[in-house]
Computed example of a mutant assay.
Amino acid sequence: MGQVQTAPPFHPPTQPPHYQAHPTGPDMTKKTVVGYELLADKLTEGPKDETGGSAEGQVLPMYRKFEALNHRILLHLQDEIAELEEELRYVDESIAQSSPSPHASRRAEARYGSELHYRRTDMLGRIFIKLGQYNQALSSFSTMLKNLDPASTEEVHAYHSWMEKHAPIDCSEARFLEQKDDLLAVSRRRSAASVGGAGLHQSMALGLPLMAVLPLIALAVVPGVLGRLFVIVLIGSAEVGVVVSTELMGLLTVREWVVCASM
């Protein structure tokens, strides 16, 4: 029988793949500010009125303090450290009762110590790490509460109104404004006042030695007893005015200031 020839398999013509055209780059001659960049630019704006007060339409930056979460973390770290403290006390007591000598030597324990000594060293390292985390969290949270004030109802309303009008970010990501009792306001004026207060303390610290030296300079420069007495009284009155009108008065008690003046 002859071989039956079969037709070659039929392959339908395939279309070449459609490659998406490479998008052209943005026009860098324009500046399009949207989304979080738009919100950040708005929060960066300072007060526009001449008195330095809150200008109409200004949005004061505010952020959540996450007070409940901060307390949750601090409570968790606190209990972890307390648990390690109890374990360390147990190991210390075990070593103290099993050691033939009452004198401890860290170097000897590192070289010839038992399993309890190595366990105690490892535990001290873990406590060191946990204490660092705990101290940093506690200090950071305390500083935040001390330096920042809660956002007022008017400030939250102004922020919320601007967000509703411009809608720079998704609604789900703007819900932090609904946590009114958890919002802290970041005021540029308050930060400047803190810096000014630090400068005032530095100036007062530099002025104290000068106040003590001025009478001596007056005695050496001004001739005559009456002239010297007049200058000393004048300088003393000025110094009393400076002390009373500034924060220097709170550095010492009234009795201590009297003793200093009589010296």
Score class of each variant (00 low, 15 high):
136 Q>M: 13
124 L>R: 10
159 Y>N: 02
130 K>L: 14
145 L>W: 03
137 A>H: 08
126 R>P: 00
145 L>N: 14
119 R>M: 05
152 S>V: 03
156 V>D: 03
129 I>G: 08
151 A>K: 00
149 D>E: 15
159 Y>G: 02
118 Y>G: 15
147 N>C: 10
159 Y>M: 11
127 I>E: 01
153 T>D: 14
146 K>C: 06
136 Q>L: 13
137 A>C: 07
118 Y>E: 15
117 H>N: 11
117 H>F: 06
126 R>K: 05
125 G>I: 00
140 S>L: 10
120 R>N: 04
155 E>L: 02
148 L>P: 01
141 F>H: 11
120 R>S: 08
134 Y>Q: 12
159 Y>C: 07
116 L>N: 10
133 Q>V: 05
138 L>D: 10
134 Y>T: 07
157 H>V: 02
137 A>M: 05
119 R>V: 00
126 R>Q: 06
150 P>G: 01
155 E>M: 05
147 N>I: 14
132 G>S: 11
150 P>E: 02
117 H>Y: 05
136 Q>Y: 09
156 V>Q: 04
119 R>T: 02
139 S>G: 15
153 T>I: 15
151 A>H: 03
133 Q>Y: 07
124 L>G: 06
133 Q>K: 12
129 I>Q: 13
142 S>I: 06
122 D>Y: 01
129 I>P: 00
135 N>M: 12
132 G>V: 08
158 A>R: 12
116 L>D: 10
147 N>Q: 11
116 L>P: 00
151 A>C: 01
158 A>I: 03
143 T>C: 07
155 E>R: 03
151 A>N: 00
126 R>G: 01
142 S>Y: 04
120 R>C: 01
123 M>H: 06
159 Y>W: 04
129 I>D: 11
119 R>W: 00
143 T>I: 12
134 Y>C: 14
122 D>R: 13
127 I>M: 09
142 S>T: 14
156 V>F: 02
143 T>M: 12
152 S>P: 00
136 Q>N: 11
